[in-house]
Structures are given as structure tokens and as C-alpha cells.
Design a protein around this nucleic acid. Sequence first.
DNA 1: AGGTATTTGTTCGTATGTATT
DNA 2: GAATACATACGAACAAATACC
Lengths: 262, 262
Amino acid sequence: MKKTSAQSSISSPKSEQDLALRQPLYVVVAHTLQKEIEQGKYTVGSVLPTEEMLVDRFQVSRHTIRQALRELKDQGLIQARAGIGTIVRTQPGKIWMMSGLNSLVDLLEFATETEMHILNTSTVTADRHLVKMIKCELGSKWLHMEILRCLPDQPRPLSFLKVYVQPKYAPKLKKLKHMREPIYAVLEREYGVRIAEVRQELTADSLDHDIAELVDATPGQAALSIIRHYYDSRGELVQIALGYYPSGRYTQTTRIHSKLDE
Amino acid sequence: MKKTSAQSSISSPKSEQDLALRQPLYVVVAHTLQKEIEQGKYTVGSVLPTEEMLVDRFQVSRHTIRQALRELKDQGLIQARAGIGTIVRTQPGKIWMMSGLNSLVDLLEFATETEMHILNTSTVTADRHLVKMIKCELGSKWLHMEILRCLPDQPRPLSFLKVYVQPKYAPKLKKLKHMREPIYAVLEREYGVRIAEVRQELTADSLDHDIAELVDATPGQAALSIIRHYYDSRGELVQIALGYYPSGRYTQTTRIHSKLDE
DNA sequence: AGGTATTTGTTCGTATGTATT
DNA sequence: GAATACATACGAACAAATACC
């Protein structure tokens, strides 16, 4: 007499869960609310239903509702204040599409909008120079690809990428010449790999002659250089990308929130 | 017979709580564990005590332990995996001190280590140019300060900052010429303002002549330009900072995690 | 100004599911 | 398959912040 009062309005009890969605309840709730915010059901500045009302609506415990709201809070989507309620802060996607990078979802979705032209592909062993560049293990082997990333309606490339992928994923990658989807999407489709975390390191640099020519920029021009390490859900490093973004073509916004301060 | 079994080993029952620390239990637990990781009690790669053991040790519920661990997880400090345990991923502070920016705490602590030389102070009204630069409201008034930020043992400045602060905080700021603490610390000490969120926008630029001279760099050299908007816990904008970091003097690392993907 | 209702924040307890060894 | 350890989910209560009268 405890199991009978479970889910009702958000996902069918057992039929649809078989193939696709066996997701936790709080994820379902969070997604539902996020979609509704995107669709304008709750506008920026407006107040979300109280936790108790959401409990009634989704027929889950307050604990589950709060966990869902915490996800949205961590994304900077909403802001909760005791005594007031939960207000919508920003509309996801809309404004930040091209520049935003607040969550992994944003990062990956942004990558989807670009075209990838693969210049060359090779297999490399990490020497000291490469170890220093991308902070991998000495002697480790990698599939190396050089890529130009372009936006559909822009004359000049967005960036030049040097990508290093674990060799076990080489078969499906090494013959590619052109992609409309990022490499992580290929890995997911072909190998079932899901990226769970990205760590990136960001500096300013001057473009050298070779790269400047590739991206149609002037040598010495300022550029963002970004090194990204991609990890799967088990914490294994699957991909490293080194990107050069000439100044004026890319801006990155980040949100840093405080929960633990002293 | 429920309240008597509360806190014991982490904070004295009622004596020390009066003046300073009336913090939630999970914050205390999180801080304690973080300090212990910093001090090497748990090294990188090692396994933290199980949640049940932590329940015994801190004499709090598992829910509270999990909330504490979630804080550390969100910072990228630890990684939990079912069936395995909770492993330490990175040692906070140590390596990333100069470069790291994973949480607001890192950002603010990093700022503490620098010396600020205030070049000049003035009051400005936002014109179209300023609105475009720092994305504030047209006609709003700001206390403007130009600052050189230096690291104690480095010959050249780390960065040049143009800072805009709400005029209501001007009295305690406008006569300053030198600080060993960042502006937010002054605001907190003098006005009780606590920064709860920072949004930053990051691009690469070439240094113009004036700024290059100030930071002892060559004109045209690449630099990170970072715009930061500081908000308090009520979501009010209290400060905007525009920083120029010549290439080679500053690197920023960020961690992006996925919890909600579809 | 002050008290009460509302709403989120924190904390306890308990049970079951899932991943790993 | 069994034991271990984290993940998810239920319920309940009180505290703290805010709004309203």
C-alpha cells in the first residue's frame, strides 16, 4: 500500500519505460518544467507554482520536486527564495545560443549547430610535447584529427580544432571528411559513449602563421585557445580538443554560483 | 528523545553558534571534509569513508551527509559511484590556485591573493558606449575605478581592471588608493553585501597602446578580456568588472558537468 | 509595529532500486 | 548470487525568510 500511489500524470506506470525512458522521476519533472519555461508557460520574472502545488500536480514527494528544482537552479534557470517562491531568471537557449556555456547541455547543443571539415586524420603517440599541450599520459596513443569548424552562414571559420580521441573509437571516425555533428555525437551513436563532464582550460594567444591562414585571419591576431577534456560517466577520459577561436568570432559566458561560502 | 541525539563532534551544541557560525549542518560537514582533503587526509584517487561511516562520525542523518557530498561533487572535488564509493578527484587550491575557477569560492579566494593599486576613481553616468561595454542600464550611475592587479612576487601586473560599483557603496571606496583585498571584501565588511553569483563573459582581444603600457606588455599582444557581473543573494547587480589579462599571465579552468541530459 | 499565513530551507527517519565487487 | 555502497523516493517536522493584514 505504498507502491500504489506512485507516478500517474507524468509517465505511464510501466509501458513506456521499457525502451527509452527509465529516467529518475526528478529528471522527468525537471525536464517538464524546463520545457514549459522554454515554451513560455512561465515567463521570465514570473513565479513558478509552489512546491506543494507541484507535489499535487506531479504526484511525487516534495523531496523529488526539490531535487528537480535544484537541477534548474544549478543551471541558473530559476531562483528560489524563502517566503517568496521560485522565480524564473532566464529563458534557456534563446539569448545564449551562440555564446552561452552554462551547462554541458548548452555546450553540446552549441556544437550541434556547426559544420566540421576534417582536414586530416592520423594516429599519434604522446611525446613530451603533446603531454604538455593536452595533459595526457606519456606514451598513450590517440587518434588525431584537425578540423575546421564553421557556422552555416558565416564566411570565415569559427575555429580551428586539434582533436585527440581514444584509439578504440578510431574505426568509425578515421574515414570521415565532413560532419554536421560534433565528434561526441558520433561516439554516442556508434559506441554508446555519453559525455558526463568537460573540463576546459582557457587562455589568450596570438595566432601563428599556419593557423591564421587556415581560419582566414591575420597572423598575430588575438585568439582564444581552449583545451577541453571530455569524460564519460565513469570518469574515463575519452576525448581532448584544442581549439583556436580568433578574436571577435566567439564569446563565452559562464555563470558561477555560490552555495558554500564562509 | 529525538533532539538529544543531534550534533556532537562537529560543533558545540549552542555556545559557539551565537556570534559567528549558525551555518547549516551540511555546510559544516562539507567544509570539514574539504579541509581534510586539502590537508591530505584523503589523497587524490583515494576513497572517502562510506556515507554510513560519515553518518556515524558526524552524527547527522544520511540525507545531510549526501547534501554535503553533493556540494563537493558540484565543485568537482569528488566523484561518487554506486557500488564503489566516493573518490577524491582533485586537490582543491593547490594546483589551481592561480588558474582555477571552478566555483565562486575559488574565484573569490583567488582574488584575495592579489594586490590592488587604484589608479583613479570617478563617478560616471552610463552612456551608450558604456552600456554596450558592460551591459548595464542607460543613464545609470556608477563609481568607476581603474585598478592594476598584481601578484606579490611577480614583476609585472596580472591584469588591468576597470571596475564599476553601485554609487551607494561609494563612501567607503572612493578614497582608497591601495588594497590587499578585493572590492567585494570591502563591500562585505563595510556594507554587509555578500556576492552570491557571478556571470562572466570572456573574449580574446589585442591590447591597445594605453593598457599595454599600464600592464607592461607590448601593444597588440593577445589578452583575455573578461567582463564580470556580480550579484548579491537577492539577485541585485552590485558590481561590474572589466579585466584585461595579457597572454601568459593567466589561465582559467572551468568544469562543466552534466546531470540533466536527454 | 506586530502577528499570522505562506513558502522555501534544513533535518530527521525509512525503504527500495541499481551498480559494483 | 550475496554483500556493499551509492541513487532514488517516500513521509514528517520544524526553522527561517518574506508578505500581508
